[in-house]
């Protein structure tokens, strides 16, 4: 049983980290896009569209999103079960979430800092890479922490539809076979992962926040 839990933990971590990485590296640029569109007079229409899409994707419950995505997942990943298929689903669900979180952080940059950066003659690319990202870095670390902890829950849900990992272990052995000790250990590992993420993320953000 111990080796099963160990393997399931590795699978969960694999799904978690890869989807977290993909969602962060695609979600933050989308967040930048949202922020820039919302502040540019000519792009208000585009903002409304992106805003709506983000809202729609965020309001679909994850388990239903997984079902809706089945044909797409099959096309893209070649399969609908296993950790890799789950990573695709998790990433799709997490990108709009991360985009919204990062957009909120960008909106929190004091307008004076934007003004003074503009007055130094920064172009838009410099504005993003030299001002918006560095000025929100501690917040973004916090956002990634929230994202990863959410993904811990999502990986467990994905386990119910064949993703593997601790979620599937808990359902197959615990729920269907009444091995409650397996459920118990799986939950302990999930809680431990969440605690570790929260602790590390919080510490990192605090260290960056001067």
């Amino acid at each position: 049983m111990l080796s099963q839990i160990f393997n399931a933990t590795l699978e969960t971590l694999y799904m978690l980290l890869l989807s977290g990485f993909l969602a962060t590296s695609l979600g933050i640029p989308l967040g930048v896009g949202l922020y820039l569109c919302s502040r540019s007079r000519g792009l208000k229409g585009l903002y409304a569209l992106l805003d709506l899409l983000v809202n729609i994707f965020r309001s679909i419950p994850f388990i239903i999103l997984v079902l809706l995505l089945i044909p797409v997942t099959k096309q893209v990943m070649g399969t609908i079960i296993g950790p890799n298929a789950a990573i695709f689903n998790l990433t799709i669900a997490a990108i709009p979430f991360m985009a919204r979180l990062s957009e909120n952080s960008f909106n929190g940059v004091p307008s004076g800092i934007i003004d003074s950066s503009n007055s130094m003659g920064l172009n838009r690319w410099q504005m993003v890479t030299r001002v918006l990202i560095p000025e929100t870095l501690p917040d973004q670390i916090g956002n990634v922490t929230v994202l990863l902890i959410n993904l811990v829950t999502y990986t467990a849900i994905a386990g119910a539809v064949g993703a593997g990992g601790l979620g599937q272990l808990a359902i197959n052995y615990g729920y269907y076979r009444f091995q409650w000790d397996v459920v118990f250990y799986a939950v302990i590992v999930l809680v431990a992962i969440s605690q570790f993420l929260q602790f590390t993320g919080g510490r990192l953000a605090r260290r960056l926040r001067k």
Partner: peptide, 24 residues
Amino acid sequence: ESEVRNVRKKIGVVFQSFNLYRYR
């Protein structure tokens, strides 16, 4: 816009709230 950026480089601005970068 690109020409405006060049003009701005010749004009320094010191804002009321200073607006220094917080994490630099």
